[in-house]
Design a binder for these strands. Structure first.
Lengths: 181, 181
DNA sequence: GTCTGCATGTAACTCGTTACATGATTAG
DNA sequence: CTAATCATGTAACGAGTTACATGCAGAC
């Protein structure tokens, strides 16, 4: 149901942006829970202009590089606000190829399984370190403790969720490895 | 990269099945991490037959209901085993519409945000209860404690992961709500 | 001057969902 | 008998990825 549409509207509500900026936003903490490639973003932006949910002004960078700065229209803001308070069903299947393999663990021998789990554990630990570093930097930039009205509250919540998701995964991997002995 | 293909091969490695059975398997614990609708399963089964990774025998149920019992070929088993020990990159973006909204929390007023979070907390708690019930039933069926060679080990691991995922989500929701006061 | 990053687009393809369509079996 | 479940398929559409394609700006 066109979630990318709302992702774009939400980003533009924060600030005027180009398509490139939107793609860049998906490379940060937000990208842990939603992302899209530029090849999906640009056509969607065109569609949203036709639907009059966003508008753009052309800006010249340097000598002649044209970039399109998009912003929300009143209609776009209204649709964003409608979506944001809508209660959607909890999505069941969060696809995870590693867990699919885990379900078929009976087809592995013990060594193979341990190798696979150790490997996954390692990757997850490295990912966790990166996320924790980003959180440290975010917290360092704040003067007061983060609260509801901080401009970075959304970013903070998403980051802490990503970090705890990894921690939970890591704990489960460790306990599963212990069970395999 | 055709993950559904391997999901089907993995299920058929456990037992001969119909397309309907495969769809049913996705409604259980496995469905927490991978699933597909029957409209995707049936065409994929046909494709896998053409590729000679699976084969089927037609079985008559009752008077005249024909069903197709699929099973792995040697080639299919080989491809499954190759995939299962392959190390894939940790997937970055596990899409979650609620977390997308969370990222845009600055566009909500406090009451709206609290409402949304309470609601999500409730849904997650009900989901957790259901998963824990399934685990209780699974454990009741076991004579000995579950270990690597138990036929239900894969099922058990996936269930415990799903349960802890929900617990982690719930804790984060509670702590986030506390932060909003 | 050359490499990295900024900036925008399209085409082809694969994956996944919703809807359309049909019919048999089984348990109450 | 009738409702839920078993069983199989197709069509249309929407979402998402990979690859193709181009060019400017800024830093070193």
């Amino acid at each position: 149901m066109r979630v990318l549409k709302f992702a774009i509207l939400g980003l533009l509500e924060q600030d005027k942006m180009t398509g490139y900026d939107i793609a860049a936003a998906f490379k940060g903490a937000l990208g842990q829970f939603w992302s899209a490639k530029h090849s999906q973003i640009y056509p969607e932006l065109k569609k949203l202009v036709v639907e009059e949910l966003i508008a753009f002004e052309t800006v010249i960078q340097g000598e002649k590089l044209e970039k399109k700065l998009y912003s929300l229209t009143a209609k776009g803001t209204a649709e964003l606000m409608d979506w944001i308070q809508r209660v959607e069903a909890v999505n069941v299947s969060n696809k995870d190829e590693f867990m699919l393999k885990t379900y078929f663990i009976a087809a592995m021998d013990k060594q193979e399984a341990q190798q696979l789990f150790s490997n996954q554990l390692n990757s997850r630990q490295r990912k966790l370190e990166k996320l924790e570093q980003i959180l440290t930097e975010l917290e360092a930039e704040q003067k007061a403790p983060i609260h509801f009205s901080s401009p970075e509250f959304g970013h903070y919540l998403v980051l802490t969720r990503a970090i705890e998701r990894e921690k939970g995964y890591i704990q489960w991997l460790e306990r599963s490895l212990a069970l395999m002995e």
